[in-house]
């Protein structure tokens, strides 16, 4: 995972966001065991306490649960994961729309562009 942490805002919040994306996208599959805190922190280049705080937040949201000595696991609740995915997707869309509006694009233009790019991607894939 490419962590890309910016120092301007609380790091734990950014880490939590990245972890949510990881779970929503399936990078960390349902029921999968997460790497230990120290390893994640080293990967992200951050303080283990900060990573710990991010994971605690995810625990509070129910996306992740601890199992006494075995470590932390991603939830198996598929509904919860898809809800998180939906929330993240909405955020991303809002951001996209806001950026397009800054460019002065209308709603019609946005739909047209979206269809074209999607087709491009589909053709490239095929």
């Amino acid at each position: 995972m490419d962590w890309q942490i910016a120092p301007e805002s609380p790091i734990y919040a950014q880490l939590a966001q990245k972890l949510r994306r990881g779970i929503a996208s399936g990078l960390y599959g349902p029921g999968e065991k997460l790497p230990p805190v120290r390893e994640l922190a080293l990967e992200a280049g951050v303080n283990p306490n900060t990573m710990q705080r991010a994971l605690s937040e995810l625990e509070r949201e129910g996306l992740v649960f601890p199992q006494r000595t075995a470590g932390r696991f991603v939830t198996e609740d598929a509904q919860l994961i898809s809800r998180a995915r939906e929330t993240l997707a909405r955020e991303e869309t809002r951001r996209y729309f806001s950026a397009m509006e800054d460019l002065g694009c209308s709603a019609g233009e946005i739909s047209r562009l979206a269809a074209e790019i999607a087709k491009e991607g589909h053709d490239a894939g095929a």
Binding site: E8, P10, G45, N47, N49
Partner: peptide, 26 residues
């Protein structure tokens, strides 16, 4: 700064500011 839990700003021998790193960012 990514490494730090807590921060103390020292200026001319005095503590000018202190706190948790993320708290200060927030």
């Amino acid at each position: 700064e990514r490494l730090l839990d807590d921060v103390v700003f020292l200026g001319a021998g005095r503590v000018v500011m202190s706190g948790g790193a993320d708290e200060l960012r927030e």
